[in-house]
Structures are given as structure tokens and as C-alpha cells.
Design a protein around this nucleic acid. Structure first.
Lengths: 337, 337
DNA sequence: AATAGCTATTGGATCGTTCCAAATCCAGCC
DNA sequence: GGCTGGATTTGGAACGATCCAATAGCTATT
């Protein structure tokens, strides 16, 4: 016989009952140390492998957390995904990472597949678009589901939402640029009409409004390519603009690349602040000033709150904002660091 | 009663037997259309959700593929992971992505957890370090396992290995730099003693040897930060060097940033070629020349070969090399594109 | 009308765990 | 020696699907 060994085989070998083996597997404290040792020895000898499917079937709790990310190629999200996976792994939970690639259809499939696989909770950074059905399905299953970094469903009582305090961040960035001597600060990037764009823009807008300054905003896909393109636009059509708060670091880096290409240095005659403080920000030149979002800490927090919900039933508050911090570097100060 | 509905409930509602429901679930062609419709209607009405754990228990084949990546933060790997996930999804397989973060212990845990969850195959880009036990475990289970992009175990008959033809790529890059007028070409990045470093270096070495040129290689962690640091080293200690083939694009971008910081433009007096052609290469300034590895195509290929193995039992050849292509851009030609 | 040969449907056994209530063990005490 | 009570151990039922062999329903053929 060459089938995969089961607890029965282990039990036979160790001279105990299958129930005892099961207890050992679950790390129960009520089995005698010698018994446990014997069972573990037997497991090693016959090369036993735990069958989670069977266990799940009976106990219907899987120690599996689903994570659906709208854009795993974005380093910001990658960092979040890996940090969350590690935080959950430390508590004995496995994480299934999936990338919806900003496609609500695919997202629905992924969520469905995860539910079928019996995840016991879910963390989702939703794709843009209508996903009411997907969330309804989640609600029906009664799973703990947290929305992070983006809000895809307004029912935050059902699906608590947590993110960063972007508004304050963009206000700080704008003040910083003005203080450094900038006269006209543009906002670059972010797709119009989206909540996250509104938030990252709102602080900038408030500050400019108070100062009575004109507001120039260039919206578009938040990529490096868009930033590069906008450099040309700014130079050609808005020569008065001498600083920019960017939707994210990718746009900011693209903008800087665009200015470099046009032979215009960034840091003194043109100042830039990005958003997210991705690793690259400190390692490009000029080094990029950025509103830092401590994503590893955020992931850790998310894990903690999710576990409290799963294990103790303590549902997180409907909305949480993590504070952000402005990191001033060469691209806004002109000074080497 | 408020438990999750089962196929029995569906069967009762639809007035058929559980077996019929099971057949519908499996998309069998042998149930009558009206019957299928009735069953599907019933499923919709009572909100039935498929329980994969139960199905797996009986059928022991899960449609789940495990993917373990040594560094998911690296955009090259992220791209591979997402592309593979999509290619497999198209064939009805779900992919579990996990990040070992270059830690063999964690890698062992992840592999173990995936086996427990009953993955039916595995794709792994191994972490550096001794992982014999992990591979042994995989071998015992008899799972189809493919090593990609990195070889962690020498038994390629058991664990077929596929990657890119790096040696040819670095030879081309070096020839290209010499042809553009470079006199002394350094190699920057890559941890010494590793197979992938050897490969990416070998083409460069061969070309320089044939030309009778001196070989300067600066090894280290292949990150942006290292590249930046090496810019200073090159300027201070190797002023004769006027071009570099870099281990990867991150190092190349760091190197360029470092030269920019020192006020030395890259493209004419100093030329750089990277490796991987990540998205950013075309969107930085100067645009980065790079040895392009079509990772999406590679992922697609990997999926195809893996499926042939899983489904038809056709084991892939032990070693496969995908051709690469040199993309010349500003950083090596000095010309804007 | 009986038979054969399909197609469509079905009941029971089964997968490998966990859960539960009951049984067993064992030291301490009267 | 019998009894008590906590610590260990145990057998059988259950989880929810699939698989398999058997059955029922049809049509076409003899």
C-alpha cells in the first residue's frame, strides 16, 4: 500500500488511538508527555502529512486568510501584502494573496474561490468599479472582512475600512513647499472623482484656498509614464508652476524624470513631494520628498485588528486613519542629504 | 436551522438526489438540461456555497497551485507572480502566492503549509540557502514542482528548472557598449558565488577576455542602494571605467542615480545597461538600456508546461532557457528616444 | 412484446480529520 | 480494599462532497 499515511496509521504505529493523535496534532495540553513523544516519533517515521482538507471539513475553521489586492505590481501594495502575510504567519495563519489587477470581474471570481476554499477572514483593497454583489456575498457568509487603503463598499459597519490620514499629509506637504519658497503649487496625478484622489487633494486645496492661491490640478493614471508626460505639460502650459504635490511617488518620480529629460533640475527651481514614501524614494536622485505612510506598521495593525475580530469577535471601529509623516528630501529642499 | 446549505439541501429543494447535484457541480454533460436548470435554480434560491474542503477530501485533487517566491517586493518577481496567476486562472486553477523573503526556514514552513492545503503542483523560485529537506519533502509527495528563475536544488530531473539565457544577454550587452565606444566595461552587482551571478557575468567576461580587456567586477546586494554606493566607488577608485553592465535594473538605476548625484550625466561619458527590463526602465530618465526578459511570456510558458505535467503527466525537460533581447535606450546610446 | 443499448439518475460507501461523551487510569484517602 | 476525582485516553458519529456500481427511463431493433 502506498497511500498517504493518515492519523490511523500513526495511531497504529504509536500504539494509541486516533483520537490521541488528533489531540497531539492540535497541541492539546492534556496528553501525557511520553505519549506525545511516542506519537511524534511515529509521525516522523512514517512520514505523516497533516490533511487540512479533512480537518477543515470537520471543524470548519481553516486558519486561512484571503488577501485580494487591486494592483500587486504597485510596490506600495506589494509591501503591504508581504508585511501582512508575515504578521499573520507569526500567529499561525496562512495568507492567500491574489491580484485582481483592477478588474471587478476577476475580483469577484477570486473572492468566490477564496470563500470556497474556506478562508476564515478576508482583507481586501478593492478594485475600482461596482462590486456590490461581491460584498453582498461576503456579508451573507458573515466573514470578517476588512477594507484597506481603498473603500469599495460604503457599508463600513459591515466591512470596516482603514487607511492613512491622507488629507493631513497633503496639507503638510503643501505648507512645506510654500515655506520653502514655492509660489504656485500644482497637484499632479490621481484619477478624478475617486475618494482617494479627493483625500490626497483635499489638504492641498485647503491650504491653497486659505492662502488665496490658484489651484492647478492635472489628473490621470497614477503611473510613472503619466508623471513624465505631465512634466512636458507643466513646462509648456503652466510655466508659473514651481512646485507639485503628487498623487503618489510613481507620478513624482515620473515627473522628476520628465524634468530631467527637459534639462530642468528638480529641487530648487522646481520642487516635488510625492506620496507613500516607497523604498525607491530615498534611493533615486534627487532623493524624493514624500508623505510617508508606514505600510509595514499599517499591515501589522491590520493583522492585529483582524485577529481580534476573528478570535475574540471584537469588530474593529468602522473607520480608522493612521497618521502620516512628511519626509523632506532633496526634491523639495534642494539640499543633498 | 441556520447552517450553511449543503448539496443535500439543494437536492431536496430541486427534487433530485445529491448525486445529481454533484454531477451538476462538476459540469458533467450527462445530466439533462432541464434537470441542470432546476438544480441551478435551487442553488441560487437557498444561497448554496460549494465546500471545496469536502470535495478535496474525497477526490484529493484541488486545482490549487502553490507559488513560492523568494522576494515578492522585487518588481521582476511580482510581475512573474501576477502573470502566472492569471495564466493559471484562465485554466481554472487557483494560485496561492507566498513570499519567503529569502528565508529558507520560512520557505520550508510555507511549502509545508501548501502541501497540507493540498496543492496539486508547485512553482518555486527558491530562497538562497540549504533547502534540501524542503525539496526532499516535495519529492516524497511526488508533486509536480518547477524551479524557476533560480535553481535551489540540483536535481533538475525531479524539479525541472527554467530560466532565461542570461549568458548570451550579458555578452550582447557588453558588445553593444564596446561598439558604442566604451573602453572599459565594469560589471556591477550580484552576490558572488551564486549561480545567477555567474551566468549574468559569464557573457561579459567572455567578451572582455576575447578583446583582451581588464575585468573589474563590483559585487554586492543587488539593490538600488548598492548601485548608488557603487557610483561613488567607481568615480573614486576606477576613473578609467566608462561603462557598466549591471546585475539587474535596480542596481543600474541606483548607479545612474549615484552618477546624477555626483553631477555626471549617464549616456555618453558613462554608459549603463541593466538586466530584466522592468517597467520603470523605459520611464526613468535617462531611459535605461536593459536586457529584456519577457517575464509575462515566461510565466505563460511556465503555466503551459506545468499544466502539461499535471494533466497529461508530460514532465518538462530538465532545463529550459528562454532567449533574451537587448533593448538599447538612452543610458547606453546617449540618444533620446 | 421482448430485448438491447443508450442516457440519466440514484443510494451507499468513502475520504481523514475533529468532536463528544464515555471509559480507563491512577494516586490519595478513609 | 474500596471509593473519589482529576488526568488521560478512547470509540463512534459527524463533516459535505465524490465515486461507483446499480437502477430507471427511453428509443430503436428484433
Amino acid at each position: 500500500m502506498n497511500r498517504r499515511p493518515t492519523i490511523m496509521d500513526v495511531a497504529a504505529r504509536a500504539g494509541v488511538s486516533k483520537s490521541t493523535v488528533s489531540l497531539v496534532l492540535q497541541g492539546s495540553r492534556q496528553v501525557r508527555d511520553e505519549t506525545r513523544a511516542a506519537v511524534e516519533k511515529a509521525m516522523g517515521e512514517i512520514g505523516y502529512i497533516y490533511n487540512r482538507a479533512a480537518a477543515n471539513l470537520r471543524s470548519s475553521s481553516v486558519g486561512l486568510v484571503g488577501l485580494v489586492i487591486n494592483d500587486l505590481r504597485n510596490p506600495f501594495f506589494t509591501e503591504f501584502a508581504t508585511s501582512l502575510q508575515m504578521a499573520l504567519a507569526a500567529e499561525g495563519y496562512a495568507t492567500v494573496i491574489a491580484n485582481s489587477d483592477e478588474d471587478v470581474e476577476l475580483q469577484a471570481k477570486l473572492v468566490g474561490s477564496m470563500i470556497e476554499h474556506g478562508v476564515s477572514a478576508m482583507v481586501i483593497s478593492p478594485a475600482y468599479g461596482e462590486a456590490r454583489d461581491t460584498f453582498d456575498q461576503l456579508a451573507r457568509r458573515g466573514l470578517p472582512v476588512m477594507q484597506v487603503l481603498r473603500q469599495g463598499d460604503e457599508r463600513t459597519d459591515l466591512f470596516p475600512f482603514s487607511s492613512f490620514d491622507y488629507a493631513t499629509g497633503s496639507a503638510r506637504a503643501t505648507q512645506h513647499l510654500l515655506q520653502k519658497g514655492a509660489q504656485n503649487v500644482a497637484f499632479v496625478g490621481g484619477l478624478p472623482g475617486r475618494a482617494i484622489t479627493r483625500e490626497r487633494k483635499s489638504g492641498w486645496r485647503e491650504v491653497l484656498r486659505k492662502e488665496g492661491l490658484e489651484q492647478v490640478a492635472l489628473h490621470g493614471k497614477s503611473s510613472r509614464a503619466f508623471g513624465m508626460e505631465m512634466a512636458e505639460t507643466l513646462i509648456a502650459e503652466h510655466p508659473e508652476i514651481d512646485a507639485a504635490v503628487c498623487f503618489n511617488d510613481l507620478v513624482a518620480l515620473g515627473l522628476i524624470a520628465g524634468f530631467a529629460r527637459a534639462g530642468r533640475p528638480v529641487g530648487t527651481e522646481f520642487r516635488v513631494v510625492g506620496f507613500d514614501d516607497i523604498e525607491e524614494a530615498a534611493q533615486s536622485w534627487p532623493q524624493l520628498s514624500s508623505v510617508s505612510c508606514d505600510i509595514a506598521q499599517f499591515a501589522q495593525d491590520t493583522a492585529t485588528r483582524l485577529l481580534a475580530w476573528m478570535v475574540e469577535g471584537k469588530r474593529p471601529e468602522p473607520e480608522m486613519r493612521m497618521p502620516v509623516r512628511l519626509i523632506a528630501r532633496t526634491s523639495s529642499t534642494g539640499e543633498a542629504t
